[in-house]
Design a protein around this nucleic acid. Structure first.
Length: 722
DNA sequence: TTATAATTACTTTTT
DNA sequence: GTAATTATAA
């Protein structure tokens, strides 16, 4: 370990780096040099004789993993250490120990869309009404169960009330469907591995022996499955280092359990805890508001952010008329910064929901400000991309029926719904997968001769494509494009088809890049990797473009100039995340994460009116704005305000004047817009679906939380808005 | 079977 | 307001 490097660290950082054996908890505030500590720790371990091969570092995203690999390599700790996400690690383990886990290694990973198809099928198979048991709700519940490591069988044993028993049926059937198709969803990856480690001492022993030093970053956002998995891996040697910040836990809705980090010392009694409270990133002005904000959370351990930087930055609040004006103000301010030679890559705009990027993009285009929307998975959600990938998935995993059904008539080759249904029935009857059924199409009953020919032809196409599956992926994708007829079908369809082909070209480029970077490229590995891509993975840090992203995607990043827009009640905090106190605290942490990404200046804004689901509505300023303690700030900043005309200071004592509504405002809004939450004396809470404005005879259709939908006469219903 | 029209559901964050 | 599913006609 480089002495000079060690000398640069603070004493607590050094303590964390040099504590090599046994459990270690690093409670690291934002901007405390946590990443540096982890990479130095890896280097120090290797330096003291630990083989890189025995080190396993777990990060939150693939992007973070890649960065850590590079940083470690820069410290001379190159190669050999396993650095990846929990999910990627699980894929590797499941491929290696497929048999022990009771599966085949060429499994498909099902994303939200695939899951939705399967759960719909499951609901149908259980003969349930899709309206009373919405697939999305079922899927959510199943995911929660899996994150708690409750499998279908043990849930069945404990399901008592009607809803649970129904859910249990769907869960069981859903798992069957996945198993038949050799498919796993995201939660399965974790659950399977956790169970495997806990039940198979041979496998667990082998892996614990391989990964003798475990480092887990962003520990505050691990869920119960990840917690159990990590514990099982580290149990024998106790070399587990967890780093994180309870104040930055923002994935509770996804099963993250903040108690994992809070109880680390109980789980590992010999644990050494190191606190990193100094902040090297942000100016004092930013840390003051961040501190003031997060102090409002009741359920937290007291911690202060200690500023190391001595220069003053600026926090400002702009109040705009509507979202277009807000976007315009942001674009103008960014443009001004670019004029002051600030690199565009040092500017970021954060928002609560993805849909808010649209207004920003329009404004940025208008002002000719270079930008990138950090939304990597969007590309993989395009129809044509999903089509090509579905072909590849069927090739790698013939049992993957979701993928097969997607491509069987894409492009249209005369295989319609009826034919597909018959083929499915035939497969079920003979205990075959759909893929296998196609190879003996001529035996399928009730299908016309012409249809049989088409099915056989399709089966032969797959067979032909499958003949040469080994090796690089890009040539394979090209063959699929040409031989499936996709290319041909896009060629006659004008601009749209042209765009689609270009996108597919991009996909092939990406595959070629994978082929080059990977020692032993294989279709299976490629598919399993891209299934785990995240939005942040698409972020190009070196880019000369301003970054636009959600607050969630902002985790782990930092910029000189940070904009957080839409500081309105119901948006940030989001209305669906302000139910109970815990949810509100998570929204506050989310905003805290956004605020603490800023190095020098922070620009906050909100719009008095915002179009929400097509409705132009008056907004209310976010309560979080009042929690920043800006009173003080306004006084501090007042003298040097001159060059800052675009951003007016927010004053708590002086409520914003109510301006007349802009001309663009729509005529009077209906009393109850669809989507409005309402309360009824007997039916309780519900959401308005339809509102027929007929004066005194207006009819409101409300879906109540009990599941039933009622049409009520407004004058008698006595509904109150919530 | 396929293309178009009509209806209906879904609108938070994501590995 | 949009996307996706479903009904209908060609």
């Amino acid at each position: 370990m480089d002495e000079a490097l060690l000398a640069q660290l603070t004493s607590s950082q050094r303590k964390a780096v040099l504590h090599k054996e046994g459990p270690l908890l690093v409670l690291a505030g934002p901007g405390s040099g946590k990443t540096r500590v982890i990479t130095c720790r890896i280097a120090a371990l290797i330096d003291s004789g630990v083989r890189p091969y025995n080190i396993c570092a777990i990060t939150f995203t693939n992007k973070a993993a890649e960065e850590m690999r590079q940083r470690a390599a820069a410290l001379g700790a190159s190669g050999g250490a396993h650095i990846s996400t929990f999910h990627s690690l699980c894929v590797r383990i499941l491929r290696r120990y497929a048999q022990a886990a009771g599966m085949r290694p060429n499994f498909s990973i099902y994303d939200a869309a695939d899951q939705s198809k399967c759960v719909k099928q499951a609901v149908k198979d259980c003969r349930l009404d899709g309206t009373n048991f919405p697939p999305a709700r079922m899927l959510d519940a199943i995911s929660t169960l899996k994150n708690k490591l409750i499998d279908a069988q043990s849930f069945q044993e404990r399901a008592e009330d009607f809803f649970s028993r129904t859910l249990s049926q769907v869960y069981t059937r859903y798992q069957q469907i996945l198993a038949e198709q050799n498919g796993l969803d995201f939660d399965d990856l974790l659950m399977k591995v956790a169970f495997l480690l806990e039940s198979d001492s041979t496998v667990c022993g082998e892996l614990a022996n391989r990964f003798r030093f475990l480092l887990i970053d962003e520990y505050q956002d691990t869920n119960h499955a990840q917690y159990r998995l990590a514990k099982a891996l580290a149990l024998s040697h106790g070399n587990i280092c967890a780093t994180g910040d309870p104040d930055q836990s923002i994935y509770r809705w996804r099963g993250a359990d903040i108690r994992n980090i809070l109880a680390f010392e109980k789980d590992w009694p010999q644990a050494v805890t190191v606190k990193l409270e100094e902040n090297f990133r942000s100016t004092a002005a930013i840390l003051r508001v961040a501190d003031s904000l997060i102090a409002r959370n009741k359920n937290r351990k007291q911690k202060t952010l200690v500023a190391v930087r001595t220069d003053e930055g600026r926090v400002s609040v702009e109040i705009c008329d509507d979202e277009a004006a807000e976007a315009d103000a942001v674009a103008r301010q960014v443009d001004a910064l670019l004029g002051q030679n600030v690199p565009a890559g040092q500017i970021a705009v954060f928002y609560r929901v993805n849909s808010m990027s649209r207004a920003l993009e329009e404004a940025f285009v208008r002002h000719r400000v270079p930008y990138q929307v950090v939304r990597g998975v969007e590309f993989y959600n395009r129809k044509e991309i999903r089509d090509v990938l579905a072909y590849l998935k069927v090739l790698a995993n013939p049992a993957d029926e979701v993928a097969l059904l997607r491509v069987i008539n894409t492009p249209a080759r005369g295989i319609g719904k009826v034919t597909v249904d018959r083929a499915k029935a035939f497969a079920v009857e003979h205990g075959l997968t759909l893929s296998e059924a196609l190879t003996q199409a001529d035996r399928i009953g009730g299908v016309s001769g012409a249809a049989k020919t088409k099915l056989s032809a399709f089966a032969r196409l797959l067979d032909k494509l499958r003949q040469d599956l080994v090796g690089p992926v890009a040539p394979l994708a090209e063959r699929v494009l040409a031989e499936s007829g996709l290319e041909q079908s896009f060629k006659g369809t004008g601009q749209e088809g042209q765009d689609a082909l270009e996108n597919i070209g991009e996909l092939i480029n990406a595959a070629a890049a994978y082929d080059q970077q990977t020692a032993e490229p294989s279709l299976l590995d490629y598919l399993q990797q891209i299934a785990l891509f995240s939005d942040t993975d698409a972020y190009e840090a070196t880019s000369e473009r301003a970054a636009l992203m959600t607050l969630h995607a902002a985790k782990g990043l930092e910029f000189d100039h940070v904009f957080v827009i839409g500081l309105e009640d119901g948006l940030l905090p989001h209305e669906r995340g302000s139910g109970d106190g815990d949810e509100l605290e998570e929204e506050r942490r989310l905003f805290f994460v956004g605020v603490t990404r800023a190095r020098t200046n922070l620009y906050l804004s909100y719009a008095r009116y915002r179009t929400v689901r097509g409705q132009f509505l008056r907004t209310v300023a976010s309560p979080f704005l009042f929690e920043l303690g800006l009173d003080q700030m306004v006084q501090d900043d007042e003298e040097s305000e001159d060059d800052f005309d675009a951003f007016t200071e927010y004053r708590r004592t002086q409520p914003s004047p109510v301006r007349p509504r802009p001309a663009a405002a729509k005529p009077a809004e209906p009393l109850f817009a669809p989507g409005q939450l309402v309360r009824h004396k007997t039916f309780g809470l519900g959401r308005v679906q339809k509102f027929a404005d007929l004066g005194a005879n207006s009819v409101v259709t409300v879906q109540f939380n009990t599941g039933q939908t009622k049409s009520l006469l407004l004058q008698y219903a006595n509904l109150s808005k919530v």
